[in-house]
Every structure is written in C-alpha cells, then in structure tokens.
C-alpha cells in the first residue's frame, strides 16, 4: 500500500515530497486475516475429495463430515459428548487457574513462599503432565476424578509460571509508590500487584487453555465411556473416518474459541497498553 502511494507520488514528479520513513510496525491489520489460511486449507481438501484424489477411507470429504455431524446432532450424541468434554475441561481449567494464581501470588510476595513452592513447581514443570497419567490412574482410578486432576495439573503450571513472572517484573517504582502512600497490603495487592501481573496471567491462560484440551484428548481415550475422545475411539474401531474428523473439527473449534475468548479478555483487560500490534 505504502509502495503504491510512493510510486504515484514519484510518478507526478514532485521532488520536494519526502520519502515516508520506513515503517517498523507490521502495518494495518488485514480484514478477516485470520480466516484466510484455514479457508485455503479447506478449499484444497474439498477440491481433492471432489476430484477423487483423496480416498474417502483415508479422509472423508468435507460434505460427508458435515452430513455426519448433522446425524450426530440429530440423535443427540454430539451434544451429550460435547457437554461432558466441556465440563471436564472447564472444571480442570477453573481449578488449575485458581491454584496457579494463588501459588504465584504466595511465591511472588513472600521469600518463604518462593522457597517452598517454586522448586517443586519447577520440577513438576519438567515432567510432562501426561507422563504422570499411569500414577494418577493408580491413585484415582479411571473415573472423572482422575480426568479432572490430570487437566488441572496441565493447567496450573503455565498459569503459575507466567503469573509469577509477571508479578516479579512489576516495576519497583510502583512498589515504592505504594509504600509512600502507605497502602494497606490488601489494597497494594488489588491495585498494584494483581493488575501488574495481569499481562503475565493472561499469557499463562493462553497456554493453560491449550494444555487443558490436550489433556482432555488423552484422558478421554483411556477407558472412557463418554466425551468427544470416546466418540472418536469408537469410530476408530468401526473405521468411521467421518466421525473422527467431526471430533477433530470439534476439538479444533473448542481450542480456537477458547483461545479467542482469552485474547478478547486480554484486549479488554489490557486496553491501557499501547503495543507494537496496535
């Protein structure tokens, strides 16, 4: 855009026009820019299926997937499984977020808290949550409890890490301001610490949401009798590619929606910031 304007200016031969300085920002956002890539992918898939390049046993055609989704909705299986999956992920996300935030504040504001908490959490961070699964199954069985705990474990670590980091990077000048105003600890926490750590917390939430869905997929494929993962497991046994794809699309949509929700919250909550992307 800038280039064409420049070309036109030079074309009209006005030597006094100063060349606009080089823009370091990425430029104006493209309308619906985020949709372009996925749309392209979908077109290739549709074209490949229509032309017969893609074996329906390998990958069902998009329209078959849509019809299957319609059938699944009609007999209520999709809603039921989706509801139970969303409940598991949501519960794990809420519990994990609360635990991660509380631990981050405790570790961030007291040296003792840090000494006691930070080490174990860093160790936990080094062990992938899913590697703990055999132990969790032994401890909690294969019921809902084990599923929610696994998701919680995957969620609280990124929330803790990023909130703690955000908290620790709050400018010490603001702490001094709080001291000079003799703010009570609760007010200091509410007006300076928590808002200061919010950018870190929200970044942690984006990782946490991804982890929640990831853990959900895994726990739902272990001896589950409900949920999207179970629906897909069953479809694998009957060779129903279309149902598997419906499940994948669902997972994708859920991930996209929840990330979008966090990003929206980010924009709302951090409207005071001016950044490179604005």
């Amino acid at each position: 855009m800038t280039a064409t304007v420049l070309a036109r200016l030079q074309g009209t031969t006005t030597p006094s026009v100063r060349k606009p300085g080089r823009r370091l920002k990425p430029g104006r956002p493209i309308p619906l820019g985020a949709a372009i890539g996925p749309f392209l992918l979908l077109s290739v898939w549709a074209a490949g299926s229509a032309a017969g390049w893609i074996d329906p046993r390998t990958l069902s055609a998009p329209w078959t997937v849509v019809t299957t989704a319609g059938d699944l909705i009609a007999d209520g299986r999709l809603q039921d499984n989706l509801a139970i999956s969303a409940q598991r992920a949501g519960l794990g996300l809420v519990i994990g977020t609360v635990i991660g935030t509380v631990l981050a504040v405790v570790a961030g504001l007291s040296r003792w808290g840090e000494a006691l908490l930070d080490g174990p959490i860093q160790i936990k961070r080094a062990i992938p949550s899913l590697a703990l699964l055999p132990l969790l199954v032994l401890w909690f069985g294969i019921g809902e409890q084990m599923k929610v705990i696994t998701i919680t474990l995957g969620v609280f670590v990124p929330v803790y890490i990023h909130t703690h980091n955000g908290l620790r990077s709050i400018d010490s000048r603001y702490v001094e301001l709080g001291e000079s105003l003799r703010l009570p600890r609760a007010v200091f926490l509410r007006r300076i610490v928590l808002p200061g750590a919010l950018p870190g917390f929200l970044l942690g939430m984006r990782f946490a949401v991804v982890n929640a869905w990831l853990a959900l997929v895994v726990v739902e494929q272990i001896n589950s009798t409900s949920g999207i993962g179970y629906m897909m497991q069953l479809a694998r046994e009957y060779g129903q590619t279309d149902v598997i794809i419906v499940g994948l699309v669902l997972y994708g949509l859920l991930g996209l929606l929840s990330d979008g929700a966090v990003r929206l919250a980010q924009r709302r909550a951090l409207s005071w910031r001016r950044t490179l992307a604005d």
Partner: peptide, 23 residues
C-alpha cells in the same frame, strides 16, 4: 506526608481519577 517523584509514577492500568485517589 506525601511524596512527588521525578517521574509522575502513575499506575498505567488505572484511570486518572483512580490514580489520584489511590491512597
């Protein structure tokens, strides 16, 4: 007693009025 620093030291995440009544 109150302190005025060399930098205004306003909390960027609070609106102007909330900054004024912070203490």
């Amino acid at each position: 007693s109150s302190v005025v620093f060399q930098d205004a030291r306003l909390l960027p995440w609070q609106r102007v009025l909330d900054n004024v009544v912070l203490g």
